Structure formats: C-alpha cells, structure tokens
Computed example of a mutant assay.
Amino acid sequence: MRVLISTYGTRGDVHPFVALAKALQAHGHVVALCTPTGFRGMVERHGVPYAHMDNAVLELTEAVLRAPTRAEQRRLFKGFGAVIRAGLEDEWKAARELEPDVLVYHSKALGSHHIAEKLGAVELLAMPLPLTPTREFPVPIVPGFRLGGWLNALS
C-alpha cells in the first residue's frame, strides 16, 4: 500500500507522524511524509522519505505570532492567501508523485481531504492530540499553564 502522510505545524505536529511512517514502513508499506522543509532533516534522519512542502506557511504563521502590533499582523496576513495556495500545490504535487492509496493527514494539511477525494484514495484524519480528558496536562492550546490535575482534565 502507498501512504502519503501530510502534516504542518510545530515539531509536536510532525514527530508523531514520523513515528507512524516508520511503523508503516516496518509493515512493508511505501510511505512519504509531506511537511515543511524545516522538518526535512528530522524526517530523513528517521529513514522516512520526504515529500516537499515549502516553509513559507510556517514562516508566515510564526511571523504573525511574533508581530508586535495588530497592524503588523494585519499587514502580514495580506500575503497569507498566496502562501496557503503554494502549500496546497505542494501537497498536490506530492500526492501526484506517490499516487497514494491512503492519505493520512493532520487537520492543518488543508488540501488533503480534497486531494484524497480527487485521487479516489482512502483518507484518514489523524490528530496527535488527546481527545479524552487527562489529568497529566491541559489542552495543548494552553501548554504554558500548570493547572493541576482537576483543571487539566476539565480543560
């Protein structure tokens, strides 16, 4: 089986998919991982074939988060459409090259659902986040807070 895995985001968004790719390879499947170029080294160090996605989406997202003012954020957002389109084109190119039977993707990989539909491939949305309450840590959108067991589970 040929499997394309697409993800975008931080190392925490990418690393679980590297582990999945390695497990799929160990079971004899052909796998490629499509993620921004900033993670290419990590992907390849683990022996997983890398499929190109430009770093521009990641870089623009980080720039918006670091912007000192709302006006600067708005200015940066004006270029977001072109950058997102380029990322979608990278996902499409990776899929055309591999011709996957299955696409496994993070919700941030915006084109994957449509690519799977176009190619007639099975699609699997995979979220490397806990979907059940846990006392160990809060929901990942508030990772810097130490809420304690009860509030962690509530979050």
Rank of each mutant, 00 (worst) to 15 (best):
M1E: 08
R2T: 12
R2F: 05
R2G: 02
V3Y: 02
L4R: 04
I5P: 05
T7A: 14
G9N: 05
G9Y: 02
G9A: 11
T10G: 09
R11T: 12
R11C: 00
V14R: 03
H15E: 14
F17S: 05
V18T: 02
A19I: 04
A23Y: 14
L24I: 07
L24H: 09
L24S: 06
H27A: 10
G28H: 03
H29L: 06
A32S: 15
L33S: 03
P36G: 13
P36Y: 03
G41A: 13
G41M: 03
M42H: 11
M42L: 15
V43P: 01
G47H: 11
P49E: 05
P49H: 02
Y50V: 04
A51Q: 10
A51I: 10
A51Y: 03
H52S: 05
D54A: 14
N55D: 15
A56R: 15
L58I: 04
E59P: 09
E59K: 15
T61F: 13
V64G: 10
V64Q: 10
V64M: 12
R66Y: 07
A67L: 11
P68F: 10
T69S: 12
T69E: 03
T69A: 00
T69K: 02
R70N: 10
Q73C: 09
Q73W: 07
R74M: 07
R75S: 14
L76V: 00
F77M: 15
F77Q: 15
K78Y: 04
G81N: 12
A82S: 13
V83C: 00
I84R: 01
I84C: 08
G87M: 09
G87T: 13
G87S: 15
E89K: 11
E89L: 11
D90Q: 01
E91D: 11
W92I: 10
A94D: 00
A95S: 14
A95E: 03
R96H: 12
R96G: 01
L98M: 03
L98T: 03
E99W: 07
P100L: 08
P100M: 10
D101P: 06
D101S: 12
Y105D: 02
H106G: 00
H106A: 04
A109Y: 03
S112L: 00
H114V: 06
I115L: 14
I115D: 02
I115A: 04
A116D: 00
E117L: 15
G120Q: 01
A121D: 01
V122M: 10
V122Q: 15
E123N: 09
E123F: 04
M127I: 14
L129S: 09
P130W: 14
L131N: 06
P133A: 13
T134V: 06
F137W: 07
P140E: 05
I141S: 14
V142F: 09
G144N: 07
G144F: 07
F145Q: 12
F145Y: 14
R146H: 15
L147V: 08
L147K: 09
G149M: 01
W150Q: 08
W150F: 12
L151W: 13
N152K: 05
N152Y: 08
A153P: 00
L154K: 13
